[in-house]
């Protein structure tokens, strides 16, 4: 099936199994150019797995996926990395003895020549990415000396240096304090608005998804539980079906959005 010109990612029956566990059970979706596309759902719903299948971090998945109309299985990993970049979940094992500059430079791997030689555009891309993610001030510090928030900005700088027009973000603001959440959200927003980058992000936070806007694909136990624009999320039945929990709704006078607060497990 050839997707129309505006569709950048098209997935058909995408499924991934780990041993006996069906992590993702045959999912279809289309992502359009410049779109904000959220994967929402409880822990273990298969959101991160789906993202990693698209990045081919996980191999051995079944079904079809097309990138700009091209079968994902026919792209080399380098070609894929020039179009698609990935930011892993913050926290975990992410402290490396590399300096920030060295780490951001690694984002240019897909363009490097034999013996790791630099591409002519590398330096400009690295400088621009570091400026945009606002990490120049700690450019020469090593990653293991940074705070979680600073490190997340460095990861975003590295992804910007990669120069891909599609970004896959796994819980980009999880575990960050409010200031860093706002800073990271601001950078991502500007990437989407100014550069027209397509952003696919995973979250379990309904409010974050609604504030981000765009389209949502909600997963539960590896299957699609709901899909639609984020504006339609604030519905007790919808959220109950996705999360198996009940919510209260609060109207935000500033944004006019209907935000949610959890109310304990549904009986």
């Amino acid at each position: 099936m050839i997707p129309d010109g505006n569709t950048v990612i098209e997935a058909r029956g995408l499924a991934k199994r780990f041993g006996d566990v069906q992590a993702v059970a045959g999912i279809d979706f289309d992502v359009r150019e410049g779109e904000l596309f959220g994967f929402l759902g409880p822990n273990g719903a298969g959101k991160s797995t789906l993202l990693k299948c698209l990045m081919r971090i996980h191999t051995g998945w079944t079904g079809r996926a097309y990138l700009h109309g091209r079968d994902l299985h026919r792209c080399s990993q380098r070609e894929l990395a020039r179009s698609v970049a990935y930011v892993p979940q913050p926290g975990g094992d992410q402290s490396f003895p590399y300096t920030v500059r060295e780490f951001v430079r690694m984002g240019r791997y897909a363009y490097s020549g034999p013996f790791g030689t630099a591409h002519p555009g590398d330096q400009a891309a690295i400088d621009a990415a570091m400026r945009r993610a606002d990490v120049q001030e700690f450019a020469d510090r090593t990653l293991d000396t940074l705070s979680g928030g600073e490190r997340q900005k460095v990861f975003i700088a590295a992804v910007l240096a990669q120069g891909s027009d599609i970004l896959l973000l796994d819980e980009p603001t999880a575990f960050l304090d409010y200031r860093h959440q706002a800073e990271v959200a601001e950078v991502l927003h500007s990437i989407n608005q100014d550069s027209g980058a397509t952003i696919l992000s995973v979250t379990h936070d309904v409010n974050a998804a609604m504030l981000t806007g765009g389209h949502v694909l909600a997963l539960r136990d590896g299957e699609v539980a709901w899909r639609g624009p984020t504006g339609d999320l604030a519905c007790e039945k919808t959220l109950g079906c996705i999360f198996g929990a009940s919510f209260r709704f609060l109207d935000d006078p500033v944004t006019g959005l209907r935000l949610v607060a959890p109310q304990g497990a549904m009986r």
Binding site: I57, A85, Y86, E102, L168
Partner: peptide
């Protein structure tokens, strides 16, 4: 280049284009 990226983790290495 690949050695650097493997040091920061296989998932990141794959996402940067390493086979």
């Amino acid at each position: 280049g690949e050695l650097n990226l493997l040091t920061v983790g296989e998932e990141l290495a794959a996402s940067r284009g390493v086979a």
